[in-house]
Amino acid sequence: MNPLRTVAQPVIIAEPAYLLKRGIAALVSDMVRTDVLFIDDMGELNSHLDKNKVHAVFIDEQLLTDKPSTDLFFQLKEQTLYVGLSANPGQIRHKNKFDAVMDRSGTKEELVAAVESVLQPGTGESDKAGSLLSSREQEVLKEVALGYTNQQIAAKLYISRHTVISHRKNITAKLGIKTVSGLTVYAVLNGLIPKDQIR
Protein backbone atom coordinates (compact mmCIF):
# COMPACT_ATOMS: atom_id res chain seq x y z
CA MET A 1 0.00 0.00 0.00
CA ASN A 2 1.24 3.48 -0.82
CA PRO A 3 2.12 5.67 2.15
CA LEU A 4 -0.46 8.36 2.80
CA ARG A 5 0.19 11.77 1.32
CA THR A 6 0.83 14.36 4.00
CA VAL A 7 -1.12 17.61 3.79
CA ALA A 8 0.54 20.30 5.87
CA GLN A 9 -2.57 22.40 6.41
CA PRO A 10 -5.52 21.06 8.36
CA VAL A 11 -8.91 19.97 7.12
CA ILE A 12 -11.92 21.50 8.88
CA ILE A 13 -15.21 19.69 9.23
CA ALA A 14 -18.11 22.02 9.95
CA GLU A 15 -20.95 19.58 10.52
CA PRO A 16 -23.15 19.57 13.62
CA ALA A 17 -24.31 15.94 13.22
CA TYR A 18 -21.92 13.86 15.29
CA LEU A 19 -21.96 10.63 13.27
CA LEU A 20 -21.55 12.43 10.00
CA LYS A 21 -18.62 14.50 11.13
CA ARG A 22 -16.88 11.45 12.57
CA GLY A 23 -17.55 9.58 9.34
CA ILE A 24 -16.07 12.28 7.15
CA ALA A 25 -13.08 12.54 9.46
CA ALA A 26 -12.53 8.79 9.08
CA LEU A 27 -12.69 9.03 5.28
CA VAL A 28 -10.26 11.94 5.29
CA SER A 29 -7.82 10.09 7.57
CA ASP A 30 -7.95 7.08 5.24
CA MET A 31 -6.80 9.25 2.38
CA VAL A 32 -4.32 11.82 3.65
CA ARG A 33 -2.25 12.40 6.74
CA THR A 34 -3.42 15.72 8.13
CA ASP A 35 -4.96 17.40 11.16
CA VAL A 36 -8.73 17.40 11.27
CA LEU A 37 -10.52 20.16 13.19
CA PHE A 38 -14.20 20.19 14.10
CA ILE A 39 -15.76 23.64 14.15
CA ASP A 40 -19.50 24.07 13.76
CA ASP A 41 -19.88 27.65 14.89
CA MET A 42 -19.77 30.05 11.92
CA GLY A 43 -18.18 32.87 13.92
CA GLU A 44 -15.42 30.62 15.14
CA LEU A 45 -14.99 29.08 11.70
CA ASN A 46 -14.66 32.43 9.93
CA SER A 47 -12.24 33.73 12.48
CA HIS A 48 -10.15 30.55 12.10
CA LEU A 49 -10.16 30.82 8.30
CA ASP A 50 -9.18 34.45 8.56
CA LYS A 51 -6.10 33.70 10.62
CA ASN A 52 -4.96 30.28 9.40
CA LYS A 53 -4.28 28.45 6.20
CA VAL A 54 -6.64 25.56 5.71
CA HIS A 55 -6.44 22.82 3.08
CA ALA A 56 -10.15 22.06 2.83
CA VAL A 57 -13.42 22.81 4.61
CA PHE A 58 -16.30 20.34 4.60
CA ILE A 59 -19.36 22.34 5.54
CA ASP A 60 -23.00 21.46 6.04
CA GLU A 61 -25.18 23.80 3.98
CA GLN A 62 -27.45 24.21 7.00
CA LEU A 63 -24.72 26.36 8.55
CA LEU A 64 -24.91 28.75 5.61
CA THR A 65 -28.18 30.51 6.40
CA ASP A 66 -26.94 33.81 7.78
CA LYS A 67 -25.93 36.02 4.85
CA PRO A 68 -23.09 38.09 6.36
CA SER A 69 -21.32 35.08 7.84
CA THR A 70 -21.86 33.09 4.62
CA ASP A 71 -20.39 35.91 2.52
CA LEU A 72 -17.43 36.09 4.84
CA PHE A 73 -16.99 32.35 4.64
CA PHE A 74 -16.78 32.39 0.84
CA GLN A 75 -14.47 35.37 0.63
CA LEU A 76 -11.67 34.35 -1.67
CA LYS A 77 -9.34 31.95 0.02
CA GLU A 78 -7.94 30.53 -3.14
CA GLN A 79 -5.86 27.78 -1.64
CA THR A 80 -8.76 26.39 0.42
CA LEU A 81 -11.03 23.75 -1.06
CA TYR A 82 -14.70 24.11 -0.23
CA VAL A 83 -16.85 20.99 0.02
CA GLY A 84 -20.58 21.35 0.63
CA LEU A 85 -22.65 18.73 2.45
CA SER A 86 -26.27 18.59 1.49
CA ALA A 87 -29.27 16.31 1.63
CA ASN A 88 -30.01 17.44 -1.90
CA PRO A 89 -26.65 18.09 -3.58
CA GLY A 90 -28.17 19.10 -6.91
CA GLN A 91 -30.00 21.97 -5.24
CA ILE A 92 -27.35 23.06 -2.78
CA ARG A 93 -27.21 26.78 -2.24
CA HIS A 94 -24.05 28.63 -3.34
CA LYS A 95 -23.40 25.66 -5.62
CA ASN A 96 -20.90 27.50 -7.82
CA LYS A 97 -18.78 28.45 -4.83
CA PHE A 98 -18.01 24.85 -3.90
CA ASP A 99 -15.17 22.77 -5.30
CA ALA A 100 -17.23 19.66 -4.60
CA VAL A 101 -20.58 18.74 -3.13
CA MET A 102 -21.30 15.63 -1.05
CA ASP A 103 -24.61 13.91 -0.56
CA ARG A 104 -25.36 13.55 3.18
CA SER A 105 -27.16 10.30 2.51
CA GLY A 106 -24.71 8.97 -0.09
CA THR A 107 -23.37 5.41 -0.07
CA LYS A 108 -19.84 4.78 1.15
CA GLU A 109 -18.62 4.43 -2.43
CA GLU A 110 -20.07 7.81 -3.41
CA LEU A 111 -18.69 9.55 -0.34
CA VAL A 112 -15.24 8.04 -0.85
CA ALA A 113 -15.30 9.17 -4.47
CA ALA A 114 -16.31 12.70 -3.46
CA VAL A 115 -13.64 12.98 -0.74
CA GLU A 116 -11.09 11.52 -3.16
CA SER A 117 -11.98 14.01 -5.87
CA VAL A 118 -11.11 16.82 -3.49
CA LEU A 119 -8.16 15.46 -1.56
CA GLN A 120 -6.52 13.41 -4.30
CA PRO A 121 -7.09 15.29 -7.51
CA GLY A 122 -5.35 14.00 -10.60
CA THR A 123 -1.85 15.34 -10.82
CA GLY A 124 -1.42 14.57 -14.49
CA GLU A 125 1.53 12.27 -13.80
CA SER A 126 0.81 10.16 -16.84
CA ASP A 127 1.61 11.45 -20.27
CA LYS A 128 -0.83 9.15 -21.97
CA ALA A 129 -3.99 11.10 -21.58
CA GLY A 130 -6.37 8.21 -22.22
CA SER A 131 -4.79 5.99 -19.60
CA LEU A 132 -5.50 8.55 -16.89
CA LEU A 133 -9.10 7.46 -16.68
CA SER A 134 -10.47 4.16 -15.49
CA SER A 135 -12.51 2.23 -18.04
CA ARG A 136 -15.73 3.17 -16.23
CA GLU A 137 -14.75 6.81 -16.27
CA GLN A 138 -14.01 6.56 -19.99
CA GLU A 139 -17.48 5.10 -20.57
CA VAL A 140 -19.09 7.92 -18.61
CA LEU A 141 -16.98 10.50 -20.42
CA LYS A 142 -18.05 9.06 -23.78
CA GLU A 143 -21.72 9.45 -22.88
CA VAL A 144 -21.15 12.99 -21.56
CA ALA A 145 -19.42 13.89 -24.82
CA LEU A 146 -22.29 12.43 -26.80
CA GLY A 147 -24.57 14.88 -25.05
CA TYR A 148 -26.43 12.65 -22.58
CA THR A 149 -27.59 13.96 -19.21
CA ASN A 150 -26.54 12.42 -15.91
CA GLN A 151 -29.94 10.79 -15.63
CA GLN A 152 -29.69 9.25 -19.10
CA ILE A 153 -26.14 8.05 -18.49
CA ALA A 154 -27.21 6.45 -15.20
CA ALA A 155 -29.95 4.54 -17.01
CA LYS A 156 -27.67 3.47 -19.88
CA LEU A 157 -24.86 2.22 -17.64
CA TYR A 158 -27.13 0.77 -14.89
CA ILE A 159 -25.64 2.94 -12.16
CA SER A 160 -27.15 5.59 -9.88
CA ARG A 161 -27.19 9.24 -10.87
CA HIS A 162 -24.99 10.00 -7.87
CA THR A 163 -22.41 7.52 -9.10
CA VAL A 164 -22.44 9.23 -12.49
CA ILE A 165 -21.84 12.54 -10.73
CA SER A 166 -18.98 11.02 -8.72
CA HIS A 167 -17.39 9.71 -11.90
CA ARG A 168 -17.76 13.09 -13.53
CA LYS A 169 -16.09 14.81 -10.61
CA ASN A 170 -13.20 12.38 -10.84
CA ILE A 171 -12.94 12.84 -14.59
CA THR A 172 -12.78 16.60 -14.13
CA ALA A 173 -10.22 16.34 -11.35
CA LYS A 174 -8.03 14.05 -13.44
CA LEU A 175 -8.25 15.88 -16.75
CA GLY A 176 -8.50 19.45 -15.56
CA ILE A 177 -11.52 19.85 -17.84
CA LYS A 178 -14.90 20.74 -16.37
CA THR A 179 -17.39 21.73 -19.05
CA VAL A 180 -19.29 19.39 -21.35
CA SER A 181 -17.92 21.11 -24.46
CA GLY A 182 -14.36 20.86 -23.11
CA LEU A 183 -14.83 17.18 -22.27
CA THR A 184 -16.21 16.61 -25.77
CA VAL A 185 -13.07 18.06 -27.34
CA TYR A 186 -10.97 15.83 -25.10
CA ALA A 187 -13.01 12.75 -26.01
CA VAL A 188 -12.58 13.36 -29.75
CA LEU A 189 -8.88 14.22 -29.44
CA ASN A 190 -8.36 10.94 -27.63
CA GLY A 191 -10.42 8.84 -29.98
CA LEU A 192 -13.16 8.01 -27.48
CA ILE A 193 -15.82 9.20 -29.91
CA PRO A 194 -15.66 10.07 -33.61
CA LYS A 195 -16.02 13.75 -34.47
CA ASP A 196 -19.15 13.23 -36.54
CA GLN A 197 -21.03 11.91 -33.50
CA ILE A 198 -20.89 15.22 -31.66
CA ARG A 199 -24.30 16.73 -31.35
Binding site: N96, G124, A129, L175, G176, I177, K178, T179, S181, G182, L183, V185, Y186, L189, N190
Partner: peptide, 24 residues
Protein backbone atom coordinates in the same frame (compact mmCIF):
# COMPACT_ATOMS: atom_id res chain seq x y z
CA UNK B 1 -26.05 35.47 -13.58
CA UNK B 2 -23.92 33.25 -11.33
CA UNK B 3 -24.33 30.26 -13.68
CA UNK B 4 -23.19 32.27 -16.68
CA UNK B 5 -20.15 33.53 -14.83
CA UNK B 6 -19.21 30.05 -13.79
CA UNK B 7 -19.53 28.76 -17.34
CA UNK B 8 -17.49 31.48 -19.09
CA UNK B 9 -14.60 31.06 -16.68
CA UNK B 10 -14.75 27.25 -16.71
CA UNK B 11 -14.60 27.07 -20.51
CA UNK B 12 -11.60 29.36 -20.67
CA UNK B 13 -9.80 27.21 -18.10
CA UNK B 14 -10.76 24.11 -20.12
CA UNK B 15 -9.38 25.61 -23.31
CA UNK B 16 -6.07 26.32 -21.59
CA UNK B 17 -5.88 22.80 -20.21
CA UNK B 18 -6.76 21.22 -23.54
CA UNK B 19 -3.88 23.14 -25.13
CA UNK B 20 -1.42 22.54 -22.30
CA UNK B 21 -2.17 18.90 -21.63
CA UNK B 22 -3.69 17.40 -24.75
CA UNK B 23 -2.59 19.36 -27.79
CA UNK B 24 -1.62 17.10 -30.71
Amino acid sequence: HADEHESVIAKLVDLKNILIKYLP
